[in-house]
């Protein structure tokens, strides 16, 4: 059974009950194939955060179906047993800020996830070093986060998101604090990693600089998504 790619169908999320109930998601459809990077764009209050939490297995949807490859995660009220383990093993997170642990060096920051999963420290660090090499920050492997530039910190954060080779990565405004050049560099890295590890990457963004780089874009408005073809400019 493959767990590559993500497919969601009719995803709904309701907060509260009765008269005070709020429908944050009213039927979201989305498909991201392995190796693909798509954009998710929407104004504040559109349901973007709720969708992100559902995709990240932080909250459960009220209705709808979500699958990773052939593996069903949610299906109309049914859910997979251990959402935390799913989050740890199948979903990578990249945030707006790198959120590196200040008292761990670069390698330990990246190795944190396999460590949490109980992998031996040496194996975890080996995985981390491989990714740091792929992201061209291996020379800072022993540095502390405070010694890195903003771009380096974000690359380390990307390495952390990829270290467990998750089939899905959720990147929440990953380029917001970066200038154009660095923002595009991050997108280039994400595309490269998506291709190399067959990862489906969803980039939530407001960043006008990077929107033209997506081949496909999902817009979300009032809890409903609309798909649009993007320009895919940088990589043409």
């Amino acid at each position: 059974m493959t767990d590559k790619g993500i497919l969601i169908k009719g995803l709904k999320k309701r907060y509260g009950k009765g008269d005070t109930a709020v429908d944050a998601l009213k039927g979201v459809d989305m498909q991201v194939s392995p190796g693909e990077v798509v954009g998710l764009i929407g104004p504040s209050g559109s349901g973007k955060s709720t969708l992100l939490k559902c995709l990240g297995a932080v909250i459960e949807p009220t209705e709808g179906r979500m699958t990773l490859g052939n593996k069903v995660i949610y299906d109309n009220g049914w859910k997979v047993n251990d959402l935390r383990a799913l989050r740890r093993d199948k979903i990578g997170f990249i945030f707006q800020a790198p959120y590196l642990i200040p008292f761990l060096d670069v390698t330990d920051n990246v190795a944190l996830l396999p460590m949490l999963a109980g992998k031996p420290n040496a194996d975890s660090r080996k995985l981390a070093v491989e990714l740091l090499q792929a992201l061209d920050v291996a020379h800072r492997a022993k540095a502390m986060p405070s010694e890195l530039s903003g771009g380096e910190q974000q690359r380390v954060a990307i390495a952390r998101g990829l270290v467990n080779r998750p089939p899905v990565i959720l990147a929440d405004e990953p380029t917001a604090p970066l200038d154009s050049e660095r923002a595009l560099a991050v997108i280039r890295i994400l595309n490269h990693m998506a291709h190399q590890y067959e990862t489906a990457i969803i980039v939530v963004t407001h960043d006008e600089k990077i929107i033209p780089t997506f081949k496909r874009i999902y817009h979300i408005r009032d809890g409903v998504t609309y798909e649009e073809a993007g320009e895919g400019r940088v990589f043409e």
Binding site: G56, R84, R88, D89, F93, F95, Y99, I101, P102, L116
Partner: peptide, 16 residues
Amino acid sequence: TSEIGLLRAIGAGRGQ
């Protein structure tokens, strides 16, 4: 807060 949020997001359990 952010450190804890990160750990929780990447799959650290409450017990951890």
